[in-house]
Design a protein around this nucleic acid. Structure first.
Lengths: 344, 344
DNA sequence: CTGTTAGCGCATTCAG
DNA sequence: CTGAATGCGCTAACAG
């Protein structure tokens, strides 16, 4: 009669309800409760309602650890990004989360601080939870990353740039194309002495790839780069002002600057305003990312506008697709748009 | 001799290695492998190295689902915030993650879109994973939230404001004190006709509480609020410019505006600059949060600077403390600082 | 220091 | 449509 379970000595008040509790209260088998909770087919309405009543009474919540152990599949998605405090990743994450949430999936967050070794660590830790998929920033990873993901046999979607070929699928823009487009724009606007400013020692590498493409194109156009300045610290408006000052002091004849990000570009814009340099007459400024504030400044900031939220959305959609069809191999180029603004 | 496990029919190539595999290869018991993997005490160096060799060879990774099912404890922390795309939360999250990561804990992300019902849903879903703790934004939640967390008996830390009493512990600033300080500042600077601008229909409630405290204090000071404008959409610089235009058209004699956020305040600053209004001579502007760009504008934006990264750090630290001592009940007031800038 | 036993809570067989 | 048996992979609690 009574189930073989007499060690009910421990304080029952605090114990979480299980399938068995619901089964006993409603007088059905555990498996029937399981079926009801999962909305599995083949359950009579009568049984269903009895079970739901009992579950409600006990405040039963399925223990996903147990379910996942059995099925070895979870609704967790490992999302690994280099940073989160500022910059572009929060907006991408927002897009990712909005799609995942609608599909009943949960992002588990990992941050690498732009450190490839940390990416491996974080991924290893997350894979121990058997996530149903992995989302990574960039397409440049340690071999161990590829190996570990292959071994688990789960989908992976990489987002940001699509200049390298991804492990499976990727969503992003071509940084090379963007760099070329900016160089072409500078040429078209008759700038002759271009400069470049970056930050954070060009972490991640894709910003360096972008710069190299920019410089290469300038050479082709016959207006080679005059000078560049790469800050060692993270990008910010203040750093933008400082690097601009440094660069212009060293190479006063620079007539346009391409910035690796809008934070620095805005700092430069304000710096020029304070020091009486006319933008774009004395110096042209163009940034990267197209952050919102730049479109409201008295001199609207020129910038390469990247579709960050949408990038997250498409990334998550691709994850969903790959979940239902593991053979999915897509590369989605979302393209970019150049906001000309008034600073170039 | 051979373990009772002869259904090794399924493709072995793809199966993930388990404790048993490592145990068999290294010729020890499963529990010994377990102890080695967890760095448990009482393991001889010889055994340890043998096990590690075998584990390495097999590429063994512990399955945390199984471990967690057994111990009913995880290294997951549910982190639930209203939004992530912009604003203050990414920076707080950054602080949270940095501390959690060092402690071997992983944030699982939930986003509520400022919807209390969604907060309940998301929390319920996350609790099914038996997180070791919960971190929530704000101190205003559905009763179900409190009930569910109490029932699980896990620590919860709330961050942002500390004007209400928290479920257990909280980290943040007093929005009331901040509002009073701004009102006092306006009085001291001899502004007589103050206005207020907010956005997003005052979601979350704490921004409304801040406004009400601001208005109440103004009455005490004898300079009651002249007019206010609350946008229904999310805050942005563009919205800041528009709401400012609306407000000033309706109440042209306003001589200072307190903004619910710096995005709108910056938009206002640029708007005034474009339309020839002198800041702060014609109109004073003060924002909220102290975002970095505001400190580099030609007219430096006055703002209430909130310690967002540190808020995340202290929140996570409190979570760690509560994990080791469940009786922890702390409220940490991080305070704020008013950056006077040049706009007020 | 090392091993044996016995589940954690659920879902996949396979029978009725 | 419903149920009984079995084990996912790991680890506490005990031996030895």
């Amino acid at each position: 009669m009574t189930k073989t379970r007499n060690h009910v000595t421990q304080s029952e008040r605090t114990r979480r309800a299980t399938l068995r509790d619901v089964a006993q209260l409603s007088g059905v088998s555990e498996i029937s409760v399981s079926r009801v909770m999962r909305n599995a087919p083949s359950v009579s309405d009568r049984l269903r309602s009895r079970v739901l009543a009992a579950a409600g009474e006990l405040g039963y919540t399925p223990n996903r650890l147990a379910g996942a152990l059995k099925t070895s599949s979870t609704n967790l998605v490992a999302v690994i990004v280099p940073s989160i405090g500022n910059g572009v990743f929060p907006e991408v994450l927002d897009g990712i989360e909005s799609v995942l949430a609608d599909a009943g999936l949960r992002p588990v967050l990992g941050i690498t601080q732009y450190d490839r070794a940390q990416e491996v660590q974080v991924l290893r830790d997350m894979l121990a939870w058997s996530p149903m998929g992995v989302i990574l920033a960039g397409t440049d990873h340690e071999p161990a990353v590829t190996r570990m993901i292959d071994q688990q046999g789960i989908p992976v979607v990489e987002f940001m740039d699509i200049d390298r070929s991804p492990m499976q699928s990727a969503v992003g823009i071509s940084n090379v194309k963007a760099a070329v487009a900016v160089a072409d724009l500078l040429a078209k606007r008759n700038y002759k002495r271009p400069g470049y400013i970056g930050a954070w020692s060009e972490r991640p590498d894709r910003s360096k790839a972008r710069r190299l493409a920019f410089e290469a194109r300038l050479v082709e156009l016959g207006i080679p780069l005059v000078d560049r300045e790469i800050a060692s610290v993270r990008a910010s408006a203040e750093v933008g002002a400082k690097t601009t000052e440094t660069l212009l002091k060293r190479s006063p004849d620079i007539d346009a600057i391409f910035f690796a990000n809008d934070d620095q570009a805005l700092g430069a814009l304000f710096y020029c305003q304070r020091t009486g340099r006319k933008v774009p007459d004395d110096i042209g400024i163009i940034g990267f990312n197209g952050i919102e504030i730049g479109s409201t400044t008295p001199t609207i900031l020129a910038s390469v506008v990247t579709p960050r939220f949408q990038m997250g959305v498409e990334t998550a959609k691709l994850m969903l697709l790959a979940a239902s069809d593991p053979s999915t191999r897509n590369v989605i180029d979302l393209g970019f748009e150049i906001r000309l603004g008034e600073s170039i």
